[in-house]
């Protein structure tokens, strides 16, 4: 464990909690892409199946359980409890254009051709594009609530910090996982436009609205 991975995990946890609390307290999921949240639930399910097969540490297991629990709770709030506030018209990204190519890629490019490994690879590839429906929705509505931008900032920072974690692990442990690194780079690049708007607008107290 290193500082980049720890702060990355905490940033990820913060994002998940911020979103869950935002929906729960405001009793509304306006501006939130349910499709992205479903993709994240799939990502965690496919990646954390090893909860059943191997124990790494209390930290590892508890974080995985929290991530999966919060992901499904968020999907439940969006599609069941606060369904009336779900903005389906603007959440119109065709996720099949993400899941199918990512599924195919996971079968073609992976470290080992085994079910757990392919599911892990699928979850890594899917996570790198899972935020697209949410970013697409913001571009369609032309704005985002400030709390939603904080959620996105924490979510974007988590994988950015993981990139530094991989540099650290390569330098100190000689470890690297090309699949995770390439997908992590793609994931972080997708946030660049949002990071720019977040820093130049939200941090100056303005509302995030598009076109910039």
């Amino acid at each position: 464990m290193n500082i980049f991975r720890l702060t990355g995990d905490l940033s990820h946890l913060a994002a998940i909690i911020i979103l869950l609390l935002k929906i729960w307290k405001s009793r509304s999921c306006a501006g939130i892409s349910g499709k992205s949240q479903i993709l994240f639930a799939i990502v965690f399910t496919a990646r954390y199946l090893d909860l059943l097969t191997s124990f790494i540490s209390v930290y590892n297991t508890s974080m995985k359980v929290i991530y999966i629990g919060c992901a499904y709770a968020t999907v439940y709030l969006i599609y069941a409890k606060f369904r009336a506030t779900y903005d389906g018209n603007h959440d119109s990204f065709r996720v099949e254009f993400l899941v199918v190519p990512v599924g195919g890629l996971a079968v073609l490019i992976n470290h080992t051709f085994s079910p757990l490994e392919i599911l892990w690879t699928f979850s890594i590839y899917l996570e790198s594009v899972a935020i697209l429906p949410q970013l697409f929705m913001i571009s369609k509505t032309g704005e985002a609530e400030t709390i939603t931008t904080h959620y996105l900032f924490c979510l974007g920072m988590y994988r950015t910090l993981y990139l530094f974690n991989w540099v650290w692990r390569f330098y100190f442990e000689g470890f690297f996982d090309m699949i995770a690194i390439v997908a992590g780079l793609v994931q972080t690049v997708l946030y660049c436009d949002f990071f720019y708007l977040y820093v130049t607008k939200v941090l100056k107290g303005k509302k995030l609205s598009l076109p910039a």
Binding site: Y67, H111, T112, W120, N165
Partner: peptide, 10 residues
């Protein structure tokens, strides 16, 4: 193996 040690990441 490269992959196994990646398993300890979330």
């Amino acid at each position: 193996r490269v992959r196994d040690s990646a398993k300890d990441e979330l």
